Simulated scan of single mutants.
Amino acid sequence: MMLEILTSPALSPQHGFFTRKGGASSGIFAGLNCGTGSSDQADIVAINRNRVAEAMGVPLDHLVGVHQVHSPDVLHVTGPLSIRPQADAMVTATPGVALSILTADCEPVLFADASAGVIGAAHAGWRGAKNGVLEATLDAMEALGARRENIAAVIGPCISQAAYEVGPEFFEAFTDDDPETRRFFANGKADRMLFDLPSYGLWRLRAAGVGHAEWTRHCTFSEPERFYSFRRTTHAGEADYGRLISVIRL
């Protein structure tokens, strides 16, 4: 099966939100599992990651990633990394370096100021987005010469509101900080609420002054044949789950 790579016309640098299609993994990981932190076979994950690197036209060691911890921390990357530092976003102005983010319901966000030759990639779950990882990525890109009004940001496949049920304490954590965030919640069953993660991400990006922001409108939870989903795996009682990869390079 061929790789399936979703792209956006808003991003002119080479990029892709890879689906699970075209990978070597099997079983619960069937497809293009690129998660080195999963319990999938390491050699199979390496095959999958090499296919991604080839598709992006870079050596495998130039497919750069970080140890994601749901933080607002951003790493400036200038070349291959010998270790994966803890962070949840990266920026670079170095041609030939491919920034990669792993997700399985959280938002993968790819950024570019094509005129300045600066790109970024961020992993934004609810905690990272709430704590400012998107704004921190924009700040780090500006430090490399990007202009905020020239930056395009695209949110890739992530969990949609219809599938993201949360409890009252989650709702209160947002609305106690900012009552405006009520707009991102809809009523669910009993005391449950439905949280709109991609709309929240778009709101944060636009409020920060980004030139263009969009979501690809793909829900990881609702398309099991295309996407991995932590929440879907949890509901099914499965032991582990695959990770999708999203990549951008100059």
Rank of each mutant, 00 (worst) to 15 (best):
K189S: 13
A173N: 14
L138H: 01
P157I: 10
A112M: 07
G145L: 00
P157C: 12
D196K: 11
D177Y: 04
F174S: 00
D191L: 09
F171L: 15
F184W: 14
F195E: 06
D196W: 12
K130N: 10
F171K: 14
P157T: 11
A124K: 09
D113W: 14
D196L: 07
Q161N: 10
D191I: 00
S115T: 13
R147P: 02
R147C: 03
V154P: 00
I155M: 10
V109G: 04
I151F: 04
R192E: 06
N187D: 08
A163M: 12
I151L: 07
L134A: 04
A143L: 08
A116T: 03
E142M: 03
G132R: 05
K130E: 04
V133C: 02
E172F: 00
G167S: 11
F185Q: 00
I155P: 02
P108V: 00
V133R: 02
E149Q: 11
E142D: 12
F195H: 09
G132A: 06
M141C: 06
I159P: 10
G145E: 06
G120C: 12
Y164Q: 13
E149C: 00
A124E: 04
D191Q: 13
A152P: 10
A114K: 12
V133W: 04
D178L: 10
G188W: 07
A173Q: 15
A116W: 09
T175M: 11
A190S: 13
A143G: 01
R127A: 09
R182Q: 09
V109T: 13
F185K: 10
D113S: 05
A186W: 07
P168D: 15
S160W: 13
A153D: 00
V154F: 09
T181Q: 12
P157M: 11
M193G: 04
T175D: 04
G188S: 11
A163G: 05
G188H: 08
A162R: 15
A124P: 07
R127S: 06
L138E: 01
R183E: 12
S115Y: 00
P168S: 15
L110E: 10
T181L: 14
I155L: 14
L194D: 01
F195P: 11
F111G: 05
A122F: 05
D196A: 12
G128P: 08
E180H: 15
G132D: 03
F111R: 06
D191W: 04
G167T: 10
A116C: 09
K130C: 06
N150L: 08
F185S: 03
A186N: 12
A122R: 07
Y164R: 13
A116D: 01
I159R: 07
L144Q: 14
N187K: 14
D113N: 09
E180C: 02
E135A: 10
V118P: 15
N131G: 02
M141S: 01
G128M: 04
G120L: 09
G132C: 04
L134Y: 03
G188D: 01
C158I: 05
M193H: 14
A186C: 03
L144E: 13
V166M: 06
H123G: 08
F195T: 03
Q161I: 11
R127I: 08
D176M: 01
Q161F: 13
G132P: 03
F111E: 07
P168H: 13
E172M: 11
L110Y: 13
F184A: 02
T181V: 05
E135C: 02
L144I: 06
E169R: 13
F171N: 00
